[in-house]
Design a protein around this nucleic acid. Structure first.
Lengths: 220, 220
DNA sequence: AATATTTTTTAGTCAAGACTAAAAATTTAT
DNA sequence: ATAAATTTTTAGTCTTGACTAAAAAATATT
């Protein structure tokens, strides 16, 4: 069955919200990310349920069905592959690619996206460290932790971010926090849980708990 | 002013039709290419005129204004650059790229299209030999002729096609008529104006007048 | 020049996807 | 446990861009 631009957006956003929780997704949460009003979301959820892409009982929130998740994963795959293309081949910065990829993700051509995948050498992650589903919709298992969960004096490598708003990414860039950086948590401030981190063996930088929560790492 | 997907399509199609005639473009001609009905076209032409992108008097047909042509040229530029990308970088054949480029041409990012242009080495023509407008909307002057206008025993080089339907392109491929081929018109059949042509010094191939009309050449 | 044909426009609908305001259900607080 | 606050849904509209059927204008034919 064909999917409209709007339907694809809703499925993608429900998928994104499901990534970070096991609970059903609320109407308001969807409204916020789609930049629409709750009433519009209710309408759309009924339509998506009708088509068998979500399970939705009114007032109970929403979850993707298996079929809905398959569609969402194909959108996510396209979005993330295009982001790799924009950074690696077009020379954009990691904070510039989201909006463009939001458009490119709706281009309909299985053939194109598979050729693009090959052209990019089958990347496992996008420029923010998010995993890219393969042709079959399988996500690579990355097993990243949040920097905010790391103990003092442990070394790790920055592998990704859990949020890709431009302002957040620009902040990281200003702090010299980029993918692949070697980090050691020097000190955790008990007052506000802010931390000081050394980056690639150089002088420590101070990071709020909020920022640390959104940095994904693997142990060195 | 922002342009919708539908508006961009109409402007592009009016531009295409204007390329091959000096007369005003009829409602029906537009309807055929947009795959809509004449009544829908009338509606849209009123809206486009409202926005200052076309000159339209009812029953008199339509022409692009300067501003409308500027928008159309930017869509055409995107369409043709994406086609080059699809053939050169993604490995598609010249008869496979039109539909995908119809989608890609609506991606909104001046920065992206200029980077793409650079990435492709500022091509002058698309995979069908159609000229690509530059950043300023200027079309390179190619000065091609139609193969159907060539005299007998004159040599020329195949530079483009005036029609990019998949069936036509597949026919040319089967006849070994591809961009850059050296052609000599051996014989013009006065009965139906079909011609026999030698291709790259090898045995002649027979071509209808209809086909010859849609092949663009430059003198050798 | 009058009639027939074709093209274009008008008038009235429809579906998708958004909105606001008000009602209903759920959750939180007292 | 009830009241207050919040969330979600319903009901009714709006805009965009399509449609059909009928009317009007332009073009072609005799």
């Amino acid at each position: 069955m064909a999917t409209s631009f709007a339907e694809e957006n809703y499925l993608k956003i429900i998928y994104r919200l499901s990534e970070s929780t096991l609970e059903d997704i609320s109407t308001n949460a969807v409204a916020e990310l789609t930049q629409t009003k709750a009433a519009s979301v209710t309408d759309m959820l009924r339509k998506l349920a009708e088509k068998g892409w979500v399970n939705y009982q009114k007032y109970q929130g929403v979850r993707l069905t298996e079929e809905g998740e398959k569609i969402a994963l194909s959108i996510v795959r396209k979005h993330r592959l295009w982001e790799v293309f924009l950074v690696e081949k077009m020379g954009f910065n990691w904070d510039e690619v989201h909006e463009i990829a939001e458009q490119l993700e709706h281009i309909e051509s299985e053939a194109l996206i598979n050729k693009l995948d090959e052209f990019l050498d089958f990347p496992k992650t996008d420029p923010h460290g998010d995993p890219i589903p393969n042709k079959e919709g399988i996500l690579p298992e990355l097993g990243y932790m949040h920097l905010s969960d790391l103990k003092e004096n442990k070394a790790c490598v920055l592998m990704g971010v859990a949020k890709d708003s431009a302002v957040f990414l620009q902040l990281l860039t200003r702090l010299h926090l980029s993918l692949g950086a070697k980090l050691i948590v020097k000190e955790i401030n008990p007052f506000d849980r802010s931390i000081s981190v050394s980056i690639n063996e150089s002088g420590p930088v101070f990071i709020s708990h909020e920022v640390a929560k959104n940095i994904l790492i693997k142990m060195a």
